[in-house]
Design a protein around this nucleic acid. Structure first.
Length: 422
RNA sequence: GUGGUUGUAGCUCAGCUGGCAGAGCGCCUGACUGUGGAUCAGGUGGUCGCGGGUUCAAAUCCCGCCAGCCACCCCA
């Protein structure tokens, strides 16, 4: 007995039933990016492992334990991309896009891979959409990225979402805050959970969003009190722009980012409706990334959204996607002698831009009609020997059940007319 | 990676303290030899997640593994 092979853990088959929802999301994204003048960029799904080690940061979970890394046959270590920002910046530098003027506004959409324990809204292969505005250090760039993310969710008709923002400083002021935090937590260290004791050494900022030790965190110093003048001014301007655009937000000084390259603005959009994985979108400024990757410093800001989470939310909201106007014509030939005419009719109708299904099963009319009905046929073209001898076919309207004898020579005209009338 | 929980037909599930694997829906066929949706009848469909153990006998009890879900962790 040959064993049946199942899909790999943490992956998903997206079936035809669900694909309409994906198309709806993808089309909304493409039209909105166009309206905001973001251009699509496609980069490889795997990259040199070092790209992620250098950018995402070797202390993060993503690099330490979540990467799909393997040696190729040439002895190179490559990794399935766990996120795209590093890839985009790599491509930006490699292709000399810095010479194409600033800012360069890019977007991407595609699969990402992280070796994690799967859970609702968390998969090993998942899809992200993201935008990056590269080349501008100005707060208007931060604002535009945030504004776009809000507009996108509104356009998608996603309900009950909340925007949270923060500033996490820069390489100048963050170290001082880090020290202040360490000093604050030092005396409490023994009472903290195991994870937090580890975080204390690895990445103190992460202590802030620990769910176990909420009490200890309550009195912790706020990053906002440690921002340097430039960072504070930048943050003020971003907030001011948001207020003037009537975009509601909440400031959460404990909002930090897990990835090392983030600077200044950090933001997230969350929803209460999703359970454990509440974040549907997250991003911020990453002025440090260019240098991390061995290039010039390049100011940039962007975000990434999880498409599966958007799909889940929309399903939960039971959003009715307007079904495509049903235009399908089904051709139901009766008897071996007339099968070849079916394909001739089909080509002629398809040339008018009308979708056609040809029944390629050998079964009686009753079952052919049954199947035609279930796939959403609007008009069924039925014919056997007797019709074709008279050069006619029978066209049945599947919605009201009426039918007509039609001159086979003008079948496509009749169908076109019939579909446009209804 | 840690903890909890679940796994029986394509789907939803029943199957008691071990005793011949079931139902509804779906699918296929027929009633209707050329007319779908309704009705009725018949049929198809399962290594009971996988492997081992206990037993005369395991879907049922025990152990291990795999997978799903939930929470932690982390993030989109």
């Amino acid at each position: 007995m040959i064993e049946i092979i199942n899909r790999p853990k943490g992956t998903q088959d997206i079936l035809p039933d669900e694909i309409e929802l994906w198309h709806y999301i993808e089309e909304t994204i493409r039209s909105l990016t166009q309206l905001y003048s973001f251009s699509e960029i496609r980069t490889p799904i795997f990259e040199a492992t070092e790209l992620f080690e250098r950018s995402v940061g070797e202390t993060t979970d993503v690099v330490q334990k979540e990467m799909y890394t393997f040696m190729d046959k040439g002895g190179r270590s490559v990794t399935l991309r766990p996120e795209a920002t590093a890839c985009i910046v790599r491509a930006y530098m490699e292709n000399g896009m810095i010479n194409q003027g600033a800012p360069r506004k890019l977007y991407y959409m595609g699969p990402m891979f992280r070796y994690e324990r799967p859970q609702a809204g968390r998969l090993r292969q998942f899809h992200q959409f993201g935008i990056e505005t590269i080349g501008s250090a100005h707060p208007t760039a931060d604002f535009e990225v945030i504004e776009f993310s809000v507009a996108l969710l509104r356009q998608l008709k996603l309900e009950e979402t909340k925007l949270t923002i923060n500033s996490i400083g820069c390489q100048k002021c963050r170290p001082q805050y880090r020290e202040a935090l360490k000093a604050y937590y030092l005396e409490k260290l023994n009472n903290l959970c195991e994870d937090c004791q580890r975080r204390y050494e690895v990445n103190v900022l992460r202590l802030l969003d620990c769910k176990v030790d909420k009490e200890a965190t309550a009195g912790a110093p706020s990053i906002l009190d440690y921002l340097c003048d430039e960072c504070a001014e930048h943050f003020d301007q971003v907030k001011d722009l948001l207020v003037k655009a009537s975009i509601e937000y909440e400031i959460d000084p404990r909002l930090v980012r897990g990835l090392d390259y983030y600077t200044r603005t950090a933001f997230e959009i969350n929803t209460a409706a999703l359970g454990g994985q509440s974040q549907i979108l997250g991003g911020g400024r990453y002025d440090g990334l260019g240098e991390f990757l061995g290039g010039k410093p390049i100011p940039a800001v962007g975000f990434a959204a999880g498409l599966e989470r958007i799909v889940m939310l929309l399903k939960k909201q039971r959003l009715d996607i307007e079904a495509e106007e049903g235009m399908l014509v089904s051709i139901l030939p009766l008897g071996d002698a007339v099968f070849h005419h079916a394909f001739d009719f089909a080509s002629r109708i398809r040339r008018r831009g009308i979708p056609v299904f040809v029944d390629v099963m050998n079964r009686n009319l009753s079952n052919r009609l049954k199947h035609a009905g279930r796939i959403g046929t609007r008009l069924a073209v039925v014919f056997g020997d007797n019709e074709l001898e008279a050069s006619i076919v029978t066209v049945k309207n599947m919605i009201d059940g009426s039918q007509a004898q039609v001159d086979a020579a003008y079948l496509e005209d009749y169908i076109e007319e019939k579909l446009e009338l209804s």
